[in-house]
Design a protein around this nucleic acid. Sequence first.
DNA 1: CAGCATCCGGAAAGATACTG
DNA 2: CAGTATCTTTCCGGATGCTG
Lengths: 126, 126
Amino acid sequence: MSTVGVTPRQGFGFTDGILPGKCPSRTVLDHVTSKWGVLVLVALFEESLRWGQLHRVVDGISEKMLAQTLKVLEADGFVLRVAQPIIPPRVDYSLTARGRELTERLLPLMDWIAVNADEILSTPPR
Amino acid sequence: MSTVGVTPRQGFGFTDGILPGKCPSRTVLDHVTSKWGVLVLVALFEESLRWGQLHRVVDGISEKMLAQTLKVLEADGFVLRVAQPIIPPRVDYSLTARGRELTERLLPLMDWIAVNADEILSTPPR
DNA sequence: CAGCATCCGGAAAGATACTG
DNA sequence: CAGTATCTTTCCGGATGCTG
């Protein structure tokens, strides 16, 4: 059963909204569904990647947004950053256990979208 | 198994990126993970709602963004809009079968976030 | 040269007033 | 009631610079 407050008569309270405007869940949701958050998380699901690899794999992301997205995901404890003090620098990014839990819930969504996207965009709104 | 291209050695091709920059999946993903898309979809999962109800239930959304979000979700065939030609106007929004399929994949994510958000934001990044 | 930080212009989001 | 129009603010992307 859902716990996000969408089941009015089953005891969760509907009139207060889906999630209160200023609650931690909203903040985390914004981080995850930020423009690049989902793609970065999915990119790191299979294996850890270096900065440059991420930049190539997450097609279209700017360096600025990659840095910003990684910072937020790291601060939330989803992504682990390991920097080697060498020249040239080498920085590896990977998912934490928490990040893997989250991304596992993201993959069914991504798969469904990947399968249905063509039909969705080609179907006139009836 | 995931089909979004994150399993390099299992046959999906990794070096091309998670999802090509200009593909339908990216467009749909952007629509769904837009700032308010997820919350509107979840709000409509249990029951259809009128404009005013949506505005109250999706706490914090502006009228402009509610209108814009609903238009996009309607154009994608996730949301059905039924307007009664009466005064005062009455417009009901509900999920289509497609919208329900999608939102079913969203609820596990929302539930996980709702359960873990407090710990996520209170834990220092280690 | 890899991995960022900073600055700037355009685009998207937010607040609020107004209309049919 | 259910939206649009308008204005302000915040955000995104690109270019550039810096550091070892």
